[in-house]
Amino acid sequence: MSPESTLYKGKTGQWAFVLHRVTGFLVLMFILLHIIDVSMLNFPRIYNEIHALYGNVLMRLFEVGLLFGLVYHALNGLRVIMIDFFPGSIKNEKSVFYGIFSLTVLLTIIGGFIILRPFFTGSVH
């Protein structure tokens, strides 16, 4: 088979696929880093110091991005599982994809509001 045939992943599903791949990759990179920062738990001072960084704006924005990636990957993953395990269960793939994408954006906005709020109100240092 030609390389092209393996890289081509379909028309409508193509964007869903690309985004699934990118978000899966980014979440994995985050997990790899996260295991290292959590391993500092046995050195409480270092852990708390590193951890305080999570509260600054840049890291909070990063966390909102992580939320987007995780929610999209999770919801789209469920869609893939439905299609594979129950063929025909999803009638209109295109609108299901748009639904998933909209839900991801909505949840990211709500979650993002909660994550970023302390920065604006200053209620949590």
Partner: peptide
């Protein structure tokens, strides 16, 4: 991140 703020998830 949502029900607790990150800055409170200390040791």
């Amino acid at each position: 991140h949502i029900f607790n703020d990150v800055t409170t998830t200390t040791v």
